[in-house]
Amino acid sequence: MGSTLAIARKETRLYLTTWTSYVLFGFFILITAFFFQRLVIEFQLQALDYAQSQQGWAAEHMNLTDWVLGPVFSNMSVFFLIMLPMLTMRLLAEERRQKTLELLMTTPVRPVQIVLGKYLAALLIMGIMLGLTVIFPILLAVFGGSGTEGASPVDWHTVGSSYLGLFLMGAAIVAIGLLTSAATESQIVAVVTGFAVLLMFWVIGLAARGQEGFWGGFLEYLSLTTHLENFVRGIIKLSDVVYYLSLAGVGLFLTHGVVDAQRWR
């Protein structure tokens, strides 16, 4: 446990003192802000349109959570696919390149502690990155006026389940990123492989659309992003949670295998 935390601590220290993480944080906020702003404007135009066309009743059914935050969260999941491999590419590849893996492997540290320590640090940074975006629901809660009967314009239950879903998805992506970083000493190779694997998990979802029967269901089950849909609608389903956790588990298990294989070469 001590060694796991020592490794997590060192990685966190490196994350927070090198510029890469801050560039990723900034970029993530910026691109999310861009979509957020577009969706808010669209929401206003749509509401205005309904009002002018004597369809005020339709405007009453519009709410900021489903019309603005939902799409923002779905977009964030795509940015995650692109940005998280950049966060994880360094973790093990750099240890190999700098020959510091030799240090880790010759001190009384088990491979499982190396893998978990690195994973914890990356989870923390991913959590911070995600946490920064809480600014958007807060903005809507403060400036979004009030919904029907003075209720908050933001449904915090749905926001909460969306963040849970995004965190779980992030946890799975980080595990896959860690795996691709374990297999090489080049960060570039790590990040490109990471993209390739994640792209596959993403495209599977698109391929599953319109497919019927067992294979359609199977492909859809494998897809990274379809499992987020329920969370964004405020529904926490055990099967979705299990999916993300098992993907993370498989990623970590394979990473451990790759690191441990060092002893057998």
Binding site: G2, S3, L5, A6, I7, R9, K10, R13, L14, T17, T18, Q98, K99, T100, E102, L103, L104, T107, P108, V109
Partner: peptide
């Protein structure tokens, strides 16, 4: 030498010390 360029010498020794229990 298996060192991390982005750590200070003190941080590095603390890190390795912790790995050595």
């Amino acid at each position: 030498p298996p060192v991390y360029p982005d750590l200070t010498v003190r941080e590095y020794l603390q890190f390795v010390g912790r790995l050595k229990e």
